[in-house]
Design a protein around this nucleic acid. Structure first.
Lengths: 242, 242
DNA sequence: GTAATAGTGTCTATGAGACAATATCCG
DNA sequence: CGGATATTGTCTCATAGACACTATTAC
């Protein structure tokens, strides 16, 4: 570092939240409608500026999550996903945003006014394809976050975070299928997750649907790092980079 | 985002560089001696503040790399590794730093005054063990960067960046052994990297040492994403997290 | 020749994937 | 019982790892 520090420009620091969930077998992301300029009325990721000079960045992320959504926020594990600070990404000035990724279990409907505005859960595919326009560089942030989630599914027990407190192995399989966008063999998947010690542990049994044999219930196990990892059959499709 | 944006506190934005290389079979990180307060005289990662309000963050990282080291900087690929913005991490105020990771091939000696001060290449082990004190939270940044490099070695052709323009397969193996801290079977390694199509491509042959059969030379291939990945025999030792 | 390192062949155990077969529910 | 889903068994093929062996240089 040089002595030029006091001529260094100040920036505004923001957080943006990529909250993913699974609804109707599709990967969806939580969006809000912007109430202020710029991009007033447009869809955007939940997020906002640091509130005061002493606020932790991750604390700000938690605060924004609580403020902008009516989700049960306590159980969500936020994970830093990247920094977005290109000059010009925000017309108000130099805004540097730290993106956080979180995975939410399936929930009925998160926001009140989600009917017409498009706010609420939206399929990731619609965002990535450009069908849905997002404010700022949020489409890029979503893309990076989704790819990160795909990778994390291989190496961590993150998939259980998509499910409720208990789930069947089929539920878990649907998570992998939706996030990876592929089909898996239920029988091989069944043994694979059970063999990975500590990934999931038994939690009773339940009648899942009106038809078929009831599945056993499981809950997330103590082991958070998967070894050996779950492997995506065809490997990563498109790498992400700076 | 709320209307509270103009009450949002401004922060100073910095970049820090984790430059790793291999020297004498050990993983080493580039350190500089701080010339100004705070932590004047202490060891730290190269880095510094954003120079002007329009500067790209990654451009600032490249600039600092060129300013603070006399390395041939053009070939280094910088990759965003994380954000460090805890209040109190810098006594001068709220400083948020974006860490970048880069891998450098083996070089003779990077900095001029590296003899007594400890600046220059230092073994990562000495930093992680606490044997070497670093300014700010730079030890944590190094730890995160090293773990990131370990993971990237599995899934990307990053290892070739540790080597010069051409290298033998044994050279490449030493990279994996040093970064992962384990021994590998040369014969199995040999076939594994060759089977991974596009990872490395032939580049003539050379007499490597005064003894033994000369090895074939290779250079980095077009394929940057390894599939199937190179697997660490014992899996990740200690996971890192926010 | 010997020493030393590079590269090949081959065996074996393990794991993935395909898929037949069985189990357990509801009606 | 029949239909549907869950769970188990088994087969086959690919791969990882161990390690004996051959190849090519310097001296």
């Amino acid at each position: 570092m040089t002595d030029a520090q006091w001529s260094a420009p100040a920036v505004l620091l923001a957080v943006d939240l990529v909250i993913l969930t699974l609804r109707e077998s599709s990967l969806q992301v939580l969006l809000v409608e912007r109430g202020v300029e710029p991009y007033r009325g447009a869809l955007a990721l939940p997020g906002g500026f640091l509130q005061h000079a002493e606020e932790n960045i991750v604390a700000a992320a938690h605060r924004e999550l609580a403020e902008e959504t009516d989700m049960d926020v306590e159980t969500l594990a936020l994970e830093q996903a990247g920094v977005y600070g290109d000059p010009g990404r925000d017309p108000r000035g130099r805004v540097v945003s730290v993106a956080y990724l979180a995975i939410a279990p399936r929930l009925p409907e998160p926001t009140a006014g989600s009917d017409a505005s498009g706010a609420g859960w939206q399929p990731v595919d619609r965002v990535l394809s450009g069908d849905l326009e997002l404010a700022f560089d949020h489409r890029r942030i979503v893309a990076d976050g989704v790819e990160r989630a795909r990778v994390k599914l291989e190496h961590s027990a993150l998939a259980t975070a998509f499910c409720g407190p208990t789930f069947t192995i089929t539920d878990l399989q649907e998570v992998y299928e939706a996030v990876w966008g592929i089909r898996l063999d239920p029988r091989n998947f069944y043994r694979k997750v059970q063999k990975n010690d500590g990934f999931i542990v038994a939690a009773g049994s339940a009648r899942k649907s009106a038809t078929g044999r009831p599945a056993r219930l499981f809950k997330a196990g103590p082991c958070k790092v998967l070894y050996p990892p779950m492997v995506r059959p065809n490997g990563p499709s498109s790498p992400e980079e700076q």
